[in-house]
Amino acid sequence: MSEAQPSRETTYFQAIFEAHQEEMLRDERVVMIGEDISLYTKSGILDGALSDRIFSAPISENGFCGMGVGAAMTGLRPVVDLTIASFIYLAMDQIVNQAAKIRYMTGGQATIPVVFRASMWHDGSNAAHHSDRPYPLLMNSPGLKVVVPATAADVKGLIKSAIRDDDPVVIFEDNSLWFRSGPVPEGEHLTPIGVATVRRPGDDVTLVAIGSVQQDALDAAEILAKEGTSVEVIDPRTLTPLDKPTILDSVERTGRLVIVDPAHRTCGAAAEIAAIAAEEAFHALKAPIARVTTPDVPIPFSPSLEEPLYPRKDAIVEAVRKLK
């Protein structure tokens, strides 16, 4: 994104709608399928003329995700909205067994330009059935691309790029960011898939922050800067394919790596990034790699139980201080 490009403050939520509207107007092969999406037209958020391409579905996650795949194979570019990321488990057969594998199993005959959108509703007392951050499961499924946009500009730019991409892309949006505003470039704005961004440059520690933890990571970096520690904050934005060069180049400069990941700890995105750094940048490391993650417990209902589980500013500061 060029800093010279004019931008305007937009909420993450509004950016999602703009991405759909622009792509549906640009390309009539784009259709939307999903639960509770009639509100996109009824509220006037999307042009009424697009309603012929908006399919408000029954609660049949596996069925309508598979429909998205079949429609994508035969000429449409469907965006399938799962509403809440925890519901993705109901559609795992169609997403993992079909969407991810069909191109491969057919020896490249099938092209599957489908987008699955899943919004993570953690940190809101929604309890264990509505609060998951399931992207690590899909990182373990070759054939999918997985993105985790953390700003209004990126959610717009990544949805638009995903719709134009010829492979299945799963977008993990974040409900806790919906009403957060940020600058979104005016006009056509695409965020490339597979490219990380440096949110704050630094020299002493590389802090890789995934999804919604950006602000906590930046706040932590600010606190640490006052203590004389210069922290570089990287947002991978895409988890598959991961932009390894941006992360490894930084680690080679700083020699220290902390990964902040709101997913569960075991086999999470943080674990994968830590393994890559240990394999490919071990020579540069001056301290053990640290992870700040959500511990391996289902997400509880009560705020007093839930709130302390997620990676926050203080835990990030603490993890960086310990490296010294």
Partner: peptide, 11 residues
């Protein structure tokens, strides 16, 4: 044939 559009960012 894993991807139609393999992206170099991910190796």
């Amino acid at each position: 044939d894993v991807y139609s559009n393999p992206i170099a960012g991910g190796s």
